[in-house]
Computed example of a mutant assay.
Amino acid sequence: MPSFDIVSKTDLAEVDNALANMSREMEQRYDFKGASATIERKGDEIVIHADDDLKLKQMHELLQGHLARRQIDAGCIDYKTAEKAAGQSVRQTAVIRQGIDKELAKKLVKEIKGQKLKVQASIQGDELRVTGKKRDDLQEVIAFLKELPIDQPLQYENFRD
């Protein structure tokens, strides 16, 4: 029976490259001269330090631009609330989403079943497996999922006949 997997993966090496490029650009930009703005990755988290909220917002825009240049969807980053650090400075943690969480997986399974296609969707850890008798049904599921307003980027792998 034909099947495929729905996953959500982010290439951390490309994220590192984007962060390195962003740091180099911040050193060159006039508006960051003399500022103590830093960005670093620790595991699946990115820690952003900025002098104030304006610099933090500029760093968000830079980060999204550099991720887009590396073909990484900016939706894979989940920003937490900004915290006040010493003085005017601000610290923010952003989590890089890896895998599909249980709530999103249940929602996707419900949406797929609501389409009345002859496919079965099952949750397997942090990914979904969709199986069906016809290849065309599976392709319809992929097209349908691409149209859904989901803020997390999804990839479709292991398409087997």
Rank of each mutant, 00 (worst) to 15 (best):
I112D: 08
T93M: 10
S36I: 07
Q92R: 15
M26Y: 05
L56M: 15
K55F: 00
Q98I: 13
G87D: 11
G75Q: 01
A18L: 04
Y156W: 06
A74K: 15
I100D: 07
T81G: 06
D53I: 02
G34M: 04
S8K: 07
E14K: 15
D136G: 02
I150V: 14
R91N: 08
L67C: 03
R69E: 15
A94I: 01
T38R: 13
K80T: 03
N21Y: 12
I96G: 03
I112K: 12
V130L: 13
K106F: 02
R129E: 14
Q71F: 07
R29K: 13
L117C: 09
E147T: 09
G114F: 10
M26A: 09
K134W: 02
V7G: 05
D5F: 11
K102N: 06
D73G: 04
E61K: 06
V119Q: 07
K9N: 11
E147K: 15
A105V: 04
E45F: 01
E157L: 11
Y30R: 08
I72A: 04
M59T: 15
M26I: 13
K102Y: 02
S3E: 12
Q71H: 15
D11M: 05
E103W: 00
R69S: 10
I100Y: 03
D126E: 14
K102D: 14
G99E: 09
Q155Y: 02
Y156L: 04
D44R: 06
G34F: 10
D52I: 10
V130M: 02
A18F: 06
K9T: 13
C76Q: 06
R41I: 12
I39R: 02
Y79L: 11
L138Q: 01
Q139Y: 07
V109N: 02
Q71K: 08
L108W: 03
S23A: 08
M1G: 12
H60P: 00
V15N: 06
L138G: 07
N21Q: 15
E111S: 07
F144T: 03
L108I: 13
E140D: 12
K146V: 03
G125N: 01
I6M: 05
M22N: 09
E103I: 10
R24C: 07
K116L: 11
T10M: 05
R160A: 12
K113M: 12
G114K: 05
G114R: 06
I142V: 15
A20V: 08
T38F: 08
F4Q: 10
K9D: 12
M1Y: 09
I72W: 00
E157F: 01
F144Y: 14
D151R: 09
L56T: 04
P149R: 07
L12F: 14
E45T: 04
Q139V: 07
A37L: 01
R160L: 05
Q88A: 06
G87R: 12
D51E: 12
I123K: 00
C76L: 00
K110Q: 11
K102Q: 13
E40V: 14
G43L: 08
E103D: 14
K146A: 04
R24D: 15
E25P: 01
E61A: 13
L104K: 02
A18N: 11
L62R: 08
